[in-house]
Design a protein around this nucleic acid. Sequence first.
RNA 1: GGGCGGUUAGCUCAGUUGGUAGAGCACAGUGUUCACAUCGCUGGGGUCACUGGUUCAAGUCCAGUACCGCCCACCA
Length: 760
Amino acid sequence: MDKTFDAASAEGRIYARWEEAGAFRAGSGARPGAEPFTIVIPPPNVTGSLHMGHALNNTLQDILVRWKRMQGADVLWQPGTDHAGIATQMVVERELAAAGNESRREMGREAFVNKVWEWKEQSGGLILNQLKRLGASCDWSRDRFTMDDGLSAAVLKVFVQLYNEGLIYRDKRLVNWDPYFETAISDLEVEQVEEKGKLWRFRYPLADGVTYRHPVEHDEDGNPTAWEERDYLVVATTRPETYLGDTAVAVHADDPRYAGLIGSECVLPGVGRRMPIVADEHADPEKGTGAVKITPAHDFNDFQVGKRHDLRQINVMDAKAHITLEGNAPFLQGCQPSPEIMVLDGHDRFDARKRIVALAEEQGWLDGIDEEVHVVPHGDRSKVPIEPWLTDQWFVDAPTMAKPAIEKVRAGETRFVPRNWENTYFRWMENIEPWCISRQLWWGHQIPVWYDDEGKAYCAETEEEAAAQAGGRALTRDPDVLDTWFSSALWPFSTLGWPEQTPELERYYPTSVLVTGFDIIFFWVARMMMFGLHFMKDGEGRPLIPFHDIYVHALVRDAHGKKMSKSLGNVIDPLELIEQYGADALRFTLASMAAMGRDIKLSVNRVEGYRNFATKIWNAARFAEMNECKPVAGFDPGKVEQTLNRWIVGETARVAAQTQAALEGYRFNDAANGLYAHVWGVFCDWYVEFSKPLLYGEDAGPRDETRATMAWALDQCLKLLHPFMPFVTEELWGQIARRDTLLVHADWPEIPESLADRAA
RNA sequence: GGGCGGUUAGCUCAGUUGGUAGAGCACAGUGUUCACAUCGCUGGGGUCACUGGUUCAAGUCCAGUACCGCCCACCA
């Protein structure tokens, strides 16, 4: 044997042997009558590449899956990739631009989508191969893609059924609009970013010569002591550009300053629009000036206020968030904007902001400017401020669908590990808003709805069915695609063949455990719960949960504790660590740090340390081999007589029980650390050392017993370590006794607990 | 504004029913014919953030404080 394990050259060879043996196929090695054990992989972005988060996530899944497989369970680890609509479209657009191609809009929808498919074919296998480098033992023969034919059929069926049930509907309301990608996005795709900003105060003249007395000085108790006569109202805003769409000013009914003005009107400076002064609880006397301008078409609060007071909704921006005034009938209705205002037409919103503030100053209606820190919503992909925009979009009735999903977790049918994530889940699900699922993108599942000339919608799985419904009227398909997470929500059953009633669906659903990071509990886990419960039923029509356990692991963060992300460019490449230290070392590091509820800041030192651990056990095996310690058929650990051997049998029984218990409780770090301490601190430091007199001794009885015991104890170590360090253990399993069996198929140690007493 | 988590050795972190503080790395010394120098042996190093409480006993339970981080929240 060599002195060290050459991971770089061995890993590929070992992985190929596993695949040739079909070791990862669903049900491979299952005992007769075995229970199913199913995990669906959180599908990585098809054009992505492996980052630390994937490495952690898939290492933990692989540990569970290999462990269960050795126990003889009927294991399926279902792999696949996600089309990741907005992310992939962004990447491909960027690539096309970099290569000097015409833009997406120039080449047109069909040509662009073909380009994305080309891109997918070209780079789509990359991440799967990287998962193999990590040692992931998925059933690759069952690889799926969210846009393959079967999964697309599932999406269609789900959409049509939910539409017919009224759980998907079209609505004109304010949505989060991303002006960079020119698409709506869901609430979850909005990031609140704290920014230093300004609060501008504008003076809106009161109409019809109305004036009021505004308090300007106060005593210690806050009672006004001096007033001034004003013929204008001061409103504060962080977004001057939206003032063009103002249709009211709101004050609080109980605010003594403005009570007398309720029912009067004011005039929008430069625009000339007359606007009512309304009383609304949204107006907070403590904030700003207590009088708030209302822009129903460009602010979520104002939208609600507008509904309560039946205010006009005037949209003053286009899809790029450029000001649009020329020919904007609602804007022009009933007013005559000045030329200085009309010149803003076509300007970017932030450019318009500057010009409006300058104009206000020039014309004397700028009351003042305050510095302020406030949170500004940004698109999580585009990183530009999102614009609340009034459009027609498709929505899922999430509040209705959330109810059973909440119930099942409350009832304990689905259990979060650690448990405290359940509170996070409940809080979000109980306050869930309708889910905006339509995206004005090209890459994704196109919405199965067609419209006739009058705009009437026909929802069907095929154009033919829609045409039949329409009675021959000319139809146009809705151009939008679905949010990527819509197809992800079906993942636990669509990958098993639904809507076909496949044997796999029957056998492997509900899945056993979902292993995921907490960052996608809302995006993904919650929606799988909702959709799974709605579409999957048992024989008696009762809803079936998508998974029994949800193991939520920490995020691997960078040195500053920041979330690693492609866009931040702070990604540590796990493949570099694999190349340098071996996949086993990286896996063991991640497992040993996967304590619950804490972020992982990865230390390369530690990876090196566990590479050394692999070397350590390698050399222990080498020692065993040099001393002719070979497994003895029919060896009974309960019958050894030497004190030393009785002791190591006990220690081995103890660590086996400890590892088993840790894995059952998803305590990966306990399992890993316990094995490390046993192999290095017990087996190598003590057992190997004290075995030397016996192994080198003349007395054949004790010597042979020690040889057999050492071989047995080492075998147990290899088995217990295999889920964590599959490559080095597999290699040793073959080398030690020139075995032609694979460790991946070996039985998990079940050592009588009574033997553990001997450890004393 | 609401919620959650963290604060233990120089660094990265364990520490599940409360019972004399742990690991790896780093550091100091030392050892290579004897499985392993990707190693062995020896050693230094912590008032377990702070305050108070419960208890025979608190890193561990309770209350509060201070920093740090994350998530959620309608940008006057």
